[in-house]
Nucleic acid binder design. Structure first.
Length: 671
DNA sequence: TAGCCTCGAGTTCA
DNA sequence: CTCGAGGCTA
């Protein structure tokens, strides 16, 4: 980025970060998540690093904390309360150590104390003659708010130190973190919902809100918790670790997971371990803090900005981040639907590099107001699928381009037609569609032909070996082995895999046809209502049905009936079916064993991975016994079968009180 | 006829 | 996982 652009960007960033900061700290309103705010700050920090002359005294990177609220008495901290600089990568940590050693002018002993960075608020506690006298928030680091009354409601904070195993000095200053556990957070939010009170976005906000209550009774109704982590009063101990031991001996609650380590590598391990296992903690953490264990070295390292040079917070990979929409491209699906996808400047979220995110449809683009060149917030829905959740319009420089809905298909130039919220390519034979139709045909819930992935299908199409899905059954080893990078063995494997799949259950066969509106479930309904055992019979049957007849099938209404009707009255499709028959595709007739089945008319949902079979097999078995398989949990769900590493469906089932069974119990039901 | 429940179709990345 | 919409039901 050149300097002029950088200057403009820095100013924009400063403005927007300050705005969010004000809204969050003064108005107690969370407009964007702390992760997204961090991403913006990081960008600003990096730009300022590149162009130090752009650093202004009022830059958000140059200060810490917010203004104290008026209602509380101001307290001056004897020693200013610092925060920590953030690191986001191993490189950042390496750089940090280099900075320290540069500053000190020598190599230092690699001994660090690692602590969990709890998502709460830092507080200062002052004891006089062993009695808790005053407690305060960090505030701007020099002046905080007096919240003594509220802190007294927290059991983890001792009101006196009469149980101390060591002698307490006349005046003792201790610092710690105040936070709310996950359970308590949920409980209070539920209550707030009932009483139409304020809903908090995260435990930290709720803890902050609770400590700012003027009435301590409200604070005490919320079970706040606390860990102590620093002693300001000098006890003459050599290491930070010893300070923690002292705190424990004096009767403070300290975090049992903290650990002394002897290398940078161990810092990384500590951080990675807790990123993976943070779920099992009863409170939220957003990273770890590494501190130089030797108090003398730590002290000599001094202060940089508003943070000690000798300590650093190593954050977990954020759950969301900001990035730039570099382009919006269009994909054409099996049904000809045009789907816009945002091409993003790569960002790492949850340890994975994100480069694309779906925009779903053109309404969504309008709703979000995304333009090419916009800075946006990207997160991962359900921690998996990348999505654009917000556009930061304040960061626009006027060069952003609005995205126009294409009038012609980007693949083959055919006219685009508008249907409801969707836009479709009008050409039935559009190249993109044909490819997607074949992919669908061989996919797992359809013909399940392994080894015939998208890349190989593309090759076969390009080489002219196939032109539609039926052709794949004609393929012989000679055709394939002739291609570059295909050996005899791989050709053999593909052909035998294809031949193995010539026998197929009716519902899979119907699903594979790719009839509009007929997915897995509707295909099962059709197969159950009109069981046929040969393709010829299938053609005859469906050609004889009227729209009314079709609607007799459960879950089939006018729209779906019309779609099925249209499909079977298209000569091209009938030719396709006849071709399949000619190539020897056999429909397996299934005898539904519903007689004394425990699954008859029961609705099941599967989540997580099963051990003894794939999910697809499990679904099939359940259906054979008359069960209904659904992909979403509701009150009507009878059983949810939970395998290893279940997803969000498990959580929902727990909430709704659906009967939860494991794989063993499921297998018993099958018997 | 409104509102709930499901389904279909499209999506990302390792 | 999300959005849109089809089908069923109160």
């Amino acid at each position: 980025m050149d300097k002029k652009l950088a200057k403009e960007r820095v100013e924009h960033l400063k403005k927007i970060i300050n705005k969010y900061r004000y809204e969050r700290l003064v108005l107690n309103k969370e407009v964007i998540s702390p992760d997204a705010e961090d991403a913006l700050k990081k960008e600003l920090f990096d730009l300022e690093n590149e162009y130090p002359e752009l650093i202004a005294a009022d830059s958000p990177t140059q200060r810490v904390g917010g203004k104290p609220l008026k209602e509380f008495k101001k307290v001056r901290h004897e020693t200013s309360m610092l925060s920590f600089n953030d690191a986001f990568s191993e490189k950042d940590i390496n750089d940090w150590l280099k900075r320290v050693e540069n500053y000190l002018g020598r190599k230092i002993n690699r001994e660090f104390y690692c602590e969990l960075k709890i998502d709460g608020l830092a507080v200062e506690l002052v004891y006089e003659n062993g009695i808790f006298l005053q407690g305060s928030t960090r505030g701007d680091g020099i002046y905080g708010e007096d919240i003594t009354q509220n802190l007294k409601t927290i059991e983890a904070i001792p009101l006196n130190l009469e149980h101390s195993k060591i002698k307490i000095p006349k005046k003792l200053i201790v610092r710690g973190e105040v936070f709310l556990g996950k359970k308590e957070f949920e409980r209070i939010n539920k209550e707030q919902e009932k009483s139409a009170g304020k809903i908090f976005a995260n435990p930290r906000n709720m803890a902050a809100g609770s400590l700012r209550q003027l009435d301590p009774k409200i604070t005490s109704s919320r079970k706040l918790d606390s860990f102590a982590y620093e002693i300001i009063t000098d006890f003459g101990v050599k290491t930070h670790e010893e300070k923690h031991e002292l705190l424990k001996e004096m009767g403070f609650k300290i975090n049992p997971n903290n650990k002394r380590v002897n290398s940078l590598k161990e810092i990384f391990e500590f951080r990675n371990y807790w990123e993976k296992h943070r779920e099992k903690l009863s409170y939220e953490i957003d990273g770890i803090v590494a501190i130089i264990n030797d108090n003398k070295i730590f002290g000599d390292s001094g202060v940089i900005g508003k943070a000690p040079r000798g300590a650093i917070a190593y954050k977990f990979s954020p759950k969301e981040s900001t990035t730039i929409v570099e382009d919006i491209k269009i994909q054409v699906g099996r049904t000809g639907t045009l789907t816009p996808v945002a091409v993003l400047k790569p960002v790492e979220i949850g340890g994975i590099k994100i480069t694309h995110a779906t925009l779903h449809n053109f309404n969504q683009i309008k709703k979000l107001g995304v333009r090419i060149g916009d800075t946006v917030i990207v997160s991962r829905a359900g921690d998996v699928i990348p999505q654009v959740s917000k556009v930061l319009k304040d960061l626009r420089n006027g060069k952003e381009k609005e995205f126009a809905i294409p009038k012609i298909c980007p693949i083959d130039g055919s006219k685009v037609v508008h249907e409801g919220a969707f836009y479709r390519c009008s050409n039935q034979k559009c190249g993109a569609r044909n490819r997607e139709i074949i992919r669908h045909f061989v996919s797992k819930p359809a013909f399940n032909i392994e080894g015939l992935g998208p890349k190989i299908i593309d090759r076969f199409l390009d080489e002219g070996l196939i032109s539609d899905a039926a052709n794949i059954f004609e393929l012989n080893e000679g055709d394939i082995a002739g291609l570059e990078r295909f050996g005899e063995k791989s050709a053999q494997n593909i052909v035998s895999e294809i031949q193995d799949r010539k026998k197929i259950p009716l519902c899979r066969f119907i699903y594979a046809l790719g009839i509009l509106q007929v997915g897995e479930e509707t295909a099962v309904a059709l197969a159950r209502y009109f069981p046929v055992s040969r393709i010829k019979e299938l053609i005859k049957k469906y050609r004889s049905l009227s729209l009314e007849n079709l609607q007799e099938i459960p879950d089939v209404g006018p729209k779906v009936a019309q779609s099925i009707y249209n499909w079977f009255y298209n000569e091209r499709n009938i030719k396709f079916l006849e071709k399949l028959e000619k190539f020897g595709i056999k429909i397996e007739s299934i005898k539904y064993q519903t007689a004394n089945s425990k699954l008859k008319e029961k609705t099941l949902v599967f989540t997580g991975e099963l051990e003894s079979m794939s999910r697809e097999e499990a679904k099939e078995k359940a259906r054979d016994l008359g069960g209904d398989v659904s992909e979403s949990v509701s009150k009507k769900t009878d059983y949810i079968v939970v395998g290893s590493e279940p997803g969000s469906k498990y959580e929902k089932a727990k909430k709704l009180g659906v009967k939860i069974i494991d794989e063993k119990e499921f297998l018993n039901l099958l018997k």
